[in-house]
Design a protein around this nucleic acid. Structure first.
Length: 313
DNA sequence: CCGTGTTTACACGTGT
DNA sequence: ACACGTGTAAACACGG
């Protein structure tokens, strides 16, 4: 494999759209919401490419935040000084990237007109409503979602209780993007791709090759599934996630999920109870289904749209 | 002033 | 060919 020059890693554009990047940032936050500046920070921390031309991409990113219904604005509370609002993911934007490509969505998440009105006029209430839907309204630790339900404004986002961010495993969750079994990977020393293969995953070649060629410092994905030493020289895990974050999460109760790359149904928003994934090419499925459910996940088995359906034999 | 947020417009690539 | 998603530029308003 040709080794790119020392500059090329960081200066290659990551294979993610701004929407993906933003969603990752938000999902990676404790409260599942971030102010704009923190979204910037997240992206720049993880992807050196974005340490340059900040004016350009940040403008684009802001455009995306406003333009795409999948991002909702949550106003600051008076006791939370600072500029701008918090940004969160619309709960129903679930599987925007159902085709597995983080560059281009299959379909844009678009609110219905009425829904749009409701959301825009009262984003918080709208958010609550959806969080209620997702959480079933009677669980204690649903994480982001529930966090919102519990008025995350009262908590300082990005603070210590990150490991507690329980059940809501959004597809954009960094755990989802890097793979659910990283805990096992960490301990077993197997490359994540081996685990993925073991679990019946084809490697997301689109990503793995790019990642490997561009960011060896973040990557351990291998098209050939050959065993690469798990990470790696730095604190980066795949896609630039900090290893410490991974360990942190891994030590919590949250088990990450893999993204569901393919889902033939062009369904719009995944709704609770959605479980009718047709088979077909969708032989990809969540390792979460493959791993034994620990039963502690309050959202588990309640039709959390995030959790794909087990289709493996 | 500067960061934030909204909106419009256009170019480009991709999927149908 | 067309629709759509994305990236970029730019103008503008607003607020700390």
């Amino acid at each position: 494999m040709p080794r790119p020059g020392k500059n090329s890693y960081s200066e290659q554009k990551p294979p993610y759209s701004y929407i993906s990047l933003t969603a990752m940032a938000i999902q990676n936050s404790t409260e599942k919401m971030l102010p704009l500046s923190d979204i910037y920070k997240f992206i720049m921390d993880r992807f050196p490419y974005y340490r340059e031309n900040t004016q350009r991409w940040q403008n684009s990113l802001r455009h995306n935040l406003s333009f795409n219904d999948c991002f909702i604005k949550i106003p600051r509370r008076p006791e939370q000084p600072g500029k701008g609002s918090f940004w969160a993911l619309h709960p129903d934007c679930g599987d925007m990237f159902e085709n597995g490509s983080f560059l281009r969505r299959r379909k844009r998440f678009k609110l219905l007109r009425a829904e749009h009105m409701a959301c825009k006029s009262s984003p918080m209430m709208h958010y609550f409503h959806h969080q209620g839907k997702l959480s079933g309204g009677h669980h204690e630790h649903q994480g982001p979602a529930a966090a919102v339900g519990r008025l995350p404004h009262f908590q300082s986002y990005g603070s210590i209780n990150s490991g507690q961010s329980g059940g809501f495993k959004h597809p954009f969750a960094i755990e989802n993007i890097i793979g659910r079994d990283y805990k096992g990977v960490m301990t077993s020393g197997l490359p994540i791709t081996s685990v993925m293969q073991h679990l019946g995953y084809p490697a997301p070649a689109q990503l793995s090759s790019v990642v490997n060629s561009m960011w060896p410092h973040v990557g351990m994905l291998s098209d050939s599934m050959s065993a690469m030493p798990l990470p790696v020289s730095s604190e980066y895990a795949p896609f630039g996630v900090f290893m410490k974050d991974l360990y942190h999460h891994a030590s919590g109760q949250t088990l990450p999920t893999m993204p569901v790359p393919i889902k033939p149904t062009p369904s719009m928003g995944p709704m609770p109870g959605l479980s009718g994934l047709p088979p077909g090419p969708s032989h990809l499925c969540s390792p979460s289904s493959l791993l034994e459910k620990n039963g502690s996940d309050p959202l588990e088995g309640m039709g959390n749209p995030i959790h794909p359906v087990l289709l493996l034999p």
